[in-house]
Amino acid sequence: MAKKQESRRRSRSSTLLNSKTAFSIVEAYKTIRTNLLFATSTSQKKAVIFTSAEPSAGKSTTCINLGITTAQLGAHVVIVDADMRKPTLHRFVRLSNAKGLSKYLCGLESMEDSMYRDVFPNLDMITAGPIPPNPSELLSSESMVRLLDALSQSYDYVFVDTPPINVVADGLMCINYAAGAVLVARQKQTRYAELQKAINSIRNIQGNLLGVVVTNVNQKDKPYAYSEEYKYEYKNK
């Protein structure tokens, strides 16, 4: 069991952008970053919600790697793990989850005490914290609104990782407090009907869908494409 857990930790760490990451993957993230920054440039809200239709689509990986690439521009970024049912972001960077969002929202910690500083250059993180019995209520509370407001005053970008919205409604609780949502789908896993259901859920609450990121794409048959996990493509129609 210990070996399996260590293997999972190493697998998550290997998905983070670093000096050994393939050029095509780095460029794909930079392209997504550019589109995201343009999409949020006219909004006064600084928070961006990352979610998916179903588990294991790659939303947490997308969130943290876009946080890294955005911080590389010199922007001050904070990532909040709001998936308090199945938190994972602390494992990517091997942090303790003993403190974090759940404790702050319950009034057991200050924002400063919940924060991990300089996880990467220009990037701070609030982990999910111990799993609470009422995550939906906490995310819809005034404490969550105050947290996003406070973070927006101190950071250029606030990236919030939330649970899959077709599974639980937690992510929808935060969308109207944010500039919008990025919906992550996985090729050969996410079904069109499930993706459309997630899109409809966002639209039904008048949320702003910033875009859809498709992960694990194989595009070797495209005339111009990257053939790694995250893709940018051009094809004549």
Rank of each mutant, 00 (worst) to 15 (best):
M125K: 12
S201I: 00
V182P: 08
G107M: 03
I64A: 06
N134A: 04
T34Q: 10
R146A: 11
R8F: 14
S13G: 04
Y226I: 00
L195T: 08
P130R: 08
T70Y: 05
F38L: 14
S24Q: 02
N216I: 01
S43L: 08
V119E: 06
E233K: 06
M111G: 07
G211Y: 04
S7Y: 11
N65R: 09
Y226G: 01
A28K: 03
L16I: 12
G58E: 05
Y230G: 07
T21N: 01
Q72S: 09
E109Q: 15
A39N: 13
L195F: 12
R91K: 14
L147N: 10
R203W: 01
L151G: 08
K59N: 04
K86G: 02
S11P: 05
V93W: 05
C106H: 15
E233R: 04
T51Q: 08
Q219T: 00
L151E: 06
G207T: 06
Y157I: 13
S140E: 09
R203G: 03
I32F: 12
V213M: 04
K188V: 08
V160G: 05
D81R: 10
L16K: 04
T40A: 04
K30H: 10
L147T: 11
Y177L: 13
V26R: 07
F50H: 09
R12F: 12
K20I: 05
R91G: 00
N236R: 11
A98Q: 13
G171E: 03
